[in-house]
Write a protein that binds this DNA or RNA. Structure first.
Lengths: 341, 341
DNA sequence: TCGGCATCTCAAAGCGCTTTGGATAATTGC
DNA sequence: GCAATTATCCAAAGCGCTTTGAGATGCCGA
C-alpha cells in the first residue's frame, strides 16, 4: 500500500493525504481523522527512501566503528553505547546505520557517506591520538559527534567523553593517600586518546604526591583478561613489586586479580586494585557492594547523550559544536586497602 | 555533484552516463572511459536513496537485536557477529541497519521494516524458545536469516547455528570419561533456544553414561561473571559438591574459576571446568595453550556465513531456505583433568 | 448581489536515479 | 547502391514521496 493507492482509496489527492499524515494545519480535522483511520487500517507506512529523497533528509545516523587492519577487534563497549544511542534514535524516528571501516580506508569511507547522502550525521568511535577523521569530517561538512576526543581539545567539534584524566588522577591519589607508593598502571593502547589521558592523570597524581613515574610499573596494551594476568604476574615476580595496580577495564582487572591470587596474595590487602568500569550490561562489578574499587561511568549513558547531541546538531547546525564531559564516580569496593608495610 | 551535473559536464545524457557507470554494454568503450574518469575526478557517488528508489532495492540489511524490557542488556557476542557480517556486506555494497527492538514491540517493528522498504533482508538475533518472529517474518515476506534456531527445527526458514546440543553433549561425555560423576551445568537463560539445546545435550550425555540429572547441579541465568562465581561458590559449599562444571560462556567461566580458587581448590585438579567459547576478539581463551577446555565456535564466522546466506537469499529467493550448522571444536586446556577420588 | 477572506483540496513539479523505447549514425550484406 | 543491422546515444517516464502555487468552496459583511 503506497500513498497513491491510499489516496485513491479515500477519494483524496496525494497532497491532502500526505498533509493529513504529517500534521499540516491546512486539512480539515474530519478528513484528517478519516485519513489516519485508513492509514492504520491498511497498515500504511511511507517508503523511507522516497520520503527522504523528497525531503532531503535521510532520517538515519551513521555509526562508524574503526577496525584496525592488524588486530581486527571490535571494542566491547561498542554494544552498550549503541544500545543507549538506539533508544534516542527510535524515539526521534531515526534509523541507525553501522559501518565497519578498516582504518586504512577511512578517507574514502567518510567521503562516500557524505556524498551518497545516506545519513544525516555520524558518530565517530574510538578516536586515536592522531586521528585524521575529525579534520576530514569538518571538511566534508557532515554533522558529527565523537565518542571520545582528539588530543587537541579545541572547541571546534562536538564530542562526548568521560573525564579520563580526572578519573585516573583521583584513583591514583586515592591509592597514594592509602599509603601506596609503588603503583602500577595497566593502561590501554596509548595511541588511543582515552588511554593517553588516563596516563596523564596518573602521572599528575604521582607527581602531586612526590612519586616518580617508573616505566617498570607501566604497560600499554589491548585490554584483555590475559593482558591483566600476564602483566601483573610479571610485575609481582620482580623485586619491589607494586602494591597497587590501576587497570584500564573490568576485564583486565579480572586478569589482575587472578594473577594476584595465583601468587597467594589477597586483593585489597596485599595488592590494591582500581579499575575503570564502563558499567556494561553484561559485565557488572559485583552486586550491591562492588567487588572492585572503580572509576565508573556508563557507556550506555554516553551513547544516549551523544545521540541527543547529534540530533540537536542536525536540527540546528547554526548553534555550533557542543561538548559534554562525564565525570566518573569513584566507588569504593573490596579491592583496595591501606598499603601493606 | 549529481548525475545530472556530471552528464551536463560531459555533454552526455544522464542515460549514457548511468549506463557507463553501471557497466551496461550499449556504450562505447571510449565514452565509458571518459565518464569513469570524470566520475572519479569529481568524486561522484550516486545518491543511495535515489538509486534504491529507482531500482526498488534498498541495498541494506537490517539487523534486529531484541532487548528485553525487564533487564535491558545487549548480548556481548553481538559485536563480533556484526563485525563478521559487515565484512561481507561491505564487499557486496550493502549497508547495515541496526534496530534495537524492545521485545514487547516486535510485531510493529518488523512489519514497519517491511513496509517502509528500508531493507532488503533481515538478520534475527537471539531467538527464544517461543519466538513469534519467525512466523511473523514469513508472513510479511521479507527474506531473513536467524542466528540461532527456533525449537522446531523445520526447514522452512534459514538459519545459522552452532550445534549446541552436540557441543555440550561432547563436553559432558568428555568429563564423564574422565571419571566425573557429579557434573554441574551453569546454563544461560533457558527460555533462549541455544540454552535449551545445550541442556538437552548435557542431559543426553548424562543418561548415556548412566548418570542422573540432578537439579542441585543445574542453574539457568544471565551469563555474567558474578553468576559463575555465586553459583559455583554455593554448590561447592554444599555436601557432595560437583567435581566438574560446565559453564555457558567464558565470562561465566571466569567466575567459576574464581569461586574454585577462592575455596583453595585447584582448577583442573579438584574441579574441572569446560566452557563454551564464542571466540570473541577481546576475550581470548589464553594464548597458544588455552586456559579453559572449551567447546569453541567463532561467532564472527557465524556472522560471515549468515550474511552470505542472506545475500544469496535476496539474489535468488526461489532457491528456498538454507541452513548451516557449525560444529564446535572441543579444545583441551588446563581446566580439566581426571576426577579426584 | 458581490468582492474579500478563510478554509480545504488538488495538479504538477521535483528529489536523483534507472530504464524503456526510440532516434541517429555507422556498418554490413547482397 | 540500398535496405537491414548494429553500435551509440538520448528523451522521457517512473520509483513514492513532499511541497509549491493555485483553484474551489463556503461564509461574511457591505
Amino acid at each position: 500500500m503506497n500513498l497513491k493507492q491510499l489516496a485513491a482509496n479515500l477519494g483524496l489527492s496525494q497532497t491532502t493525504v500526505s498533509r493529513a499524515l504529517n500534521g499540516y494545519p491546512e486539512v480539515a480535522e474530519s478528513t484528517r481523522k478519516r485519513v489516519l483511520a485508513a492509514a492504520t487500517q491498511h497498515n500504511y507506512r511511507p517508503n523511507t527512501r522516497a520520503k527522504s529523497l523528497a525531503t532531503g533528509r535521510a532520517m538515519a545516523i551513521g555509526h562508524v566503528i574503526p577496525i584496525s587492519t592488524n588486530h581486527e577487534m571490535l571494542n566491547p563497549v561498542f554494544g552498550d553505547f549503541i544500545g543507549g544511542a538506539a533508544e534516542i534514535y527510535a524515539r526521534a524516528g531515526y534509523d541507525m546505520m553501522l559501518t565497519v571501516v578498516p582504518d586504512d580506508a577511512e578517507d574514502t569511507a567518510y567521503r562516500s557517506m557524505a556524498q551518497r547522502n545516506s545519513v544525516d550525521g555520524i558518530v565517530i568511535h574510538g578516536p586515536r591520538r592522531d586521528d585524521p577523521r575529525i579534520a576530514l569530517l569538518k571538511e566534508v561538512g557532515l554533522p558529527f559527534v565523537v565518542h571520545g576526543r582528539a588530543p587537541v581539545d579545541d572547541h571546534d567539534y562536538s564530542w562526548v567523553d568521560v573525564n579520563n584524566r580526572r578519573a585516573f588522577e583521583r584513583a591514583t591519589l586515592h591509592l597514594a593517600d592509602l599509603g601506596h607508593s609503588r603503583i602500577a598502571l595497566l593502561n590501554g593502547l596509548e595511541h588511543m586518546d582515552f588511554a593517553m589521558r588516563r596516563r596523564e592523570g596518573f602521572e599528575a597524581a604521582l607527581s602531586a604526591r612526590g612519586l616518580a613515574f617508573r616505566p617498570a610499573y607501566h604497560r600499554s596494551e589491548e585490554m584483555t583478561e590475559s593482558y591483566g594476568y600476564e602483566a601483573t604476574a610479571d610485575m609481582l615476580a620482580r623485586p619491589n613489586p607494586p602494591t597497587a595496580i590501576l587497570a584500564s577495564s573490568l576485564i583486565t582487572a579480572l586478569g589482575v586479580r587472578r594473577a594476584v591470587e595465583d601468587r597467594g596474595l589477597t586483593m585489597g590487602r596485599d595488592v590494591s586494585i582500581i579499575t575503570h568500569d564502563d558499567d556494561l550490561g553484561y559485565f557488572k562489578n559485583g552486586g550491591e557492594v562492588p567487588v572492585f574499587t572503580a572509576t565508573r561511568s556508563s557507556v550506555r549513558e554516553a551513547g544516549r547523550i551523544a545521540a541527543e547531541m547529534l540530533l540537536g546538531l542536525i536540527d540546528a547546525p547554526e548553534t555550533g559544536p557542543k561538548q559534554h564531559i562525564l565525570e566518573a564516580d569513584l566507588t569504593i569496593g573490596t579491592s583496595t586497602g591501606p598499603a601493606p608495610r
